[in-house]
Amino acid sequence: MAWNEPGGGDKDPWGNRGGNNDGPPDLDEALKKLQEKLGGIFGGKSGGSGNGGSSKGLGGLLIGAIVIASIFYVISGVYQVDEKERAVVLQFGAFSEIKQPGLRWNAPLITEVFVENVTEERQYPSRGLMLTEDESIVELPITVQYNVSDVKAYVLNVRDPEVSLRHAADSALRHVVGSTELEQVLSEGRGKIAEEVEDRLQQYLDSYGTGIMVRDVNIQEGRPPEEVRAAFDDVIKAKEDEERLKNEAQAYANAVVPAARGTSQRMLEEAEAYKAEVVSRAEGETERFLNLLAEYQKAPEVTRQRLYIESMEEVMSKSSKVMVDVEGGNNMMYLPIDKLMESNSASQGGRGNATLTQEQLRQISDYVARQLGRTNTTYREGR
C-alpha cells in the first residue's frame, strides 16, 4: 500500500513522523543529519552544543576532501590514445587488454597503462671498427629502420627493447662482416651485406620476442682506419683504373671483332662466288668442247680451219702489228701499224692519243691491196 493512499497512516518516506505531512524536508536538514551520523562514527557527539559544532565542521571537511579526492582519482584515470598508438593495460601487474585509439579511462593504482607508437619509423645509427675475413680492419656505418609490430611483446617481453636492438644489430653486422673480404665490404658487396644483416637481425629480435619489425638496413660507404687511409685510397684508385682499362678493352673488342667477322664472312662469300663461277665456266667449256668435238667429227677440215682462224683472230686482235699470210707463198707481209701510229703522234706534237686518220687508213688499205695483187700475179706466173 502506498504511503499516500487512504489508510496509509503516517508512513512518510522523508521521515516526517510527526503527523505534519506538508512535503519533503529541506536539503540542508538532510545534510545536517548526514553530518551528525558521520560525526557519530568518528567519535563525535550529536547532542552536545560546543563539541557537536566542531565535530560537524570536521565531518564536513572530511566529506569535501573525499569528494575532491574522488574527482582527482577519476580525472587521473582518463587518457587519450592517438591513431598511431596502442595502449597496453596491466591490471594488478598482469596483462589485461590492448586499448585501441580513442578517449580511454582506467582505474589508477589498480591498472597500469603503457602507450606506444606502433607506426612511427624509428632509426638506430651505429658505426664502429670491425675485422673482415681477410683480417683487415674497416669502419662501417649502419642505419637500422624499424617499428613496433607487436606492442604487447614490445612492452612485456623485454625490459629495454631499444638496447636489445642495438646489441643485436652490432652482433649481426660484425658476424656478416667477419665472413666477408675487405674488397667486397668497400665496393659492390655492401648491398649483399645489408640483406644478410637484416635477415640475421630479424632472427635475433624474433628469438628475443621484442615485437620489433626491421624495415630496412642501410650500410653507408665503408672506410679504412685513418692510419692507413692513404694506402687504401691508392688501392681503390688502382682498382678503378683496372676497371676503366677493362672497359676500354671491351669497347675496342666490341668494335673490332664484329668488323673482322664481317670481313671474314665477305671473303667466304666471295670465295664461294668465285668457286661457283669457276665451276660454271669449266662446265661451260666442257660442254662447248664436247659440242665442238661432235662438229669436228662430222667435218674435220672445216672445223680445223675455223678453229685456226678464230685463234689467230683472238691473238692478233690484241697486237698492234699486222702480218698478212699469202696463200701459196712463202713470204709474209708485215704492216707496222704501231710505227705509223707513233709517227702520227709525233707529227701532231705529242698531243692527244695516237689515232689514224681516214686518209691514212685508206692509204694503208691501198698499199695492202697492191701488195696482195702483186703477190698473186707472181704466184700465177710461177705456176
Score class of each variant (00 low, 15 high):
Arg104His: 13
Asn291Ile: 03
Asp366Ser: 13
Asn330Phe: 11
Ile41Phe: 15
Asp170Tyr: 08
Leu173Asn: 02
Tyr252Leu: 13
Gly222Leu: 05
Lys275Trp: 05
Glu295Met: 05
Leu201Gln: 06
Arg266Gln: 13
Ser76Val: 04
Val155Arg: 00
Val235Thr: 06
Val315Glu: 11
Glu342Thr: 10
Thr286Cys: 02
Ala153Tyr: 00
Gly329Lys: 11
Lys298His: 03
Lys37Gly: 09
Ser343Val: 14
Glu269Gln: 15
Arg200Trp: 08
Met332Val: 15
Val163Glu: 10
Tyr146Ala: 01
Val78Cys: 08
Gln80Val: 15
Leu34Ile: 12
Glu327Trp: 05
Leu201Lys: 09
Thr180Gly: 02
Tyr367Leu: 15
Lys192Glu: 13
Glu85Leu: 02
Leu361Ala: 12
Ser365Ala: 15
Glu85Val: 06
Asn147Trp: 00
Pro25Ala: 09
Val368Asn: 05
Tyr204Phe: 14
Ser280Pro: 01
Tyr154Val: 00
Tyr154Glu: 02
Lys321Ile: 15
Arg215Gly: 11
Val302Tyr: 05
Leu307Arg: 02
Thr132Asn: 08
Leu205His: 08
Glu272Asp: 12
Ala87His: 07
Pro25Asp: 10
Asn117Glu: 13
Gly23Ala: 06
Ala369Lys: 15
Asp10Cys: 01
Ser164Ala: 14
Leu182Tyr: 07
Glu196Val: 04
Arg380Trp: 11
Ala87Asn: 04
Glu310Asn: 09
Asn344Asp: 05
Arg261Cys: 00
Arg200Val: 03
Pro141Gly: 00
Ala169Cys: 04
Tyr274Val: 10
Glu116Arg: 15
Trp105Val: 07
Lys237Ile: 09
Ile63Asn: 03
Val257Gly: 01
Gly53Asp: 11
Val158Glu: 06
Val113Met: 07
Ser54Tyr: 09
Tyr154Lys: 00
Gln184Leu: 04
Val78Gly: 07
Gly60Pro: 07
Leu268Val: 05
Glu162Ile: 08
Leu27Lys: 12
Gly373Cys: 07
Asn106Tyr: 11
Ile364Thr: 14
Ile364Ala: 14
Leu156Phe: 08
Asn21Pro: 02
Leu307Gly: 04
Lys32Ile: 11
